[in-house]
């Protein structure tokens, strides 16, 4: 018996293949971008610290990350005796997938977006908060006290900072009346929201630093306290998945910031993709600059800062925005 494919099914299959291709392309872009970011972070930190950084592999060490990746791939896969196998193996995957999913709704340029959701912003925050599960699985599965402490810190931190993060974005949604990323970008034709909503931008940026576990909020992997936090027991490719997830997360939060506050792909003369990437990389550079300058918060100070300062401030900002909208009418 012949299996017949109806025209509707054909259309669906083509669309599915097209989506897969887009996802593959995105994955390639993300991997390349992370490789570049790792090299760049090493260079930025080196020059901040009056060093040179990697110089041997390729021009100014630009192929260093590839060499490191090969090394990590070839490393022995070490699994400690008391690990919880399932969560230990799944954790890096969960972390990376959660970091990768938000890309689907981020517009890189006009019409250059995998899926232009109506509720794009909601989708992004929903999937990116899955990352904390990966972190906790890693901490629990490792069967190591340092890892567990690190994971507990990370979970508390990420969940706490998600609140000011979302609250700060809420004022943007109030201004545009849409959760669609493309519409939000188009609403910034005249003025970037970074200028009309500076407080929201600051709250978002600070919370984003905490969300990605970057210094000065890197208490979850606080090297001088917890060895390496939740990924103490990880080595080889599983470790590099966490690494990949961290840098992907940096890209995601910066991309969201660029889209929501810095006018996304909009800019004069040059094509949109250039402007978008320039803004994203500038924000990532800022994050690196902060990381290599400031000491780290203590865990309770970090919580105080979120709950007693950022959250009330975000609420005030929403109130002010609402007042402004009402008065404008």
């Amino acid at each position: 018996m012949m299996f017949k494919i109806s025209p509707e099914n054909w259309a669906f299959l083509i669309e599915f293949a097209w989506l897969c291709a887009k996802a593959a392309g995105l994955l390639g872009f993300v991997s390349l971008s992370v490789m570049f970011l790792i090299w760049w972070e090493r260079k930025v930190s080196a020059h901040i610290q009056s060093r040179l950084g990697p110089m041997r592999v390729g021009w100014h060490g630009c192929l260093q990350t590839i060499a490191d990746t090969i090394k990590l791939l070839l490393k022995e896969n070490i699994v400690a005796k008391d690990t919880d196998k399932v969560s230990f193996w799944l954790a890096p995957l969960v972390s990376f997938v959660a970091a990768f999913l938000p890309f689907a709704a981020i517009p890189f340029a006009k019409n250059l977006v995998v899926q232009d959701f109506g509720l794009g912003l909601l989708y992004i925050f929903a999937v990116s908060s899955l990352g904390v599960i990966g972190v906790f699985m890693a901490g629990w599965g490792s069967g190591n006290k340092y890892s567990l402490l690190g994971a507990m810190r990370a979970s508390a931190q990420i969940i706490s900072y998600e609140i000011p993060l979302v609250l700060s974005v809420l004022s943007i949604v109030m201004l545009t009346g849409s959760l669609n990323m493309t519409k939000i970008v188009e609403a910034q034709g005249q003025v970037w929201f970074a200028f009309s909503q500076p407080i929201a931008f600051l709250i978002y940026f600070i919370s984003a630093l905490a969300e990605t576990n970057r210094a000065p909020f890197d208490i979850s992997e606080a090297e001088s306290e917890l060895v390496a936090g939740f990924h103490t027991e990880y080595s080889g490719m599983k470790f590099s998945m966490f690494f990949l997830a961290e840098y992907t997360n940096m890209f995601v939060v910066s991309a969201i910031a660029a889209t929501l506050f810095l006018g996304g792909w909009q800019g004069p003369f040059l094509p949109g993709i250039f402007w978008f990437l320039a803004k994203v990389y500038f924000l990532i550079f800022l994050m690196m600059w902060i990381r290599w300058t400031f000491p780290r918060f203590r865990v309770d100070q970090l919580m105080n800062f979120a709950w007693k300062f950022l959250v009330p401030l975000a609420f005030l900002n929403i109130l002010a925005t609402a007042l402004f909208l009402v008065l404008k009418k």
Binding site: Q49, A215, D218, A222, S224, R291, T293, P295, R296
Partner: peptide, 17 residues
């Protein structure tokens, strides 16, 4: 001391210089 507080590397390397 500052390195232990989490200012990763920068003050330490300045001091080393």
């Amino acid at each position: 001391f500052v390195q232990d507080l989490g200012a990763f590397g920068t003050p330490l390397l300045y001091c080393f210089r």
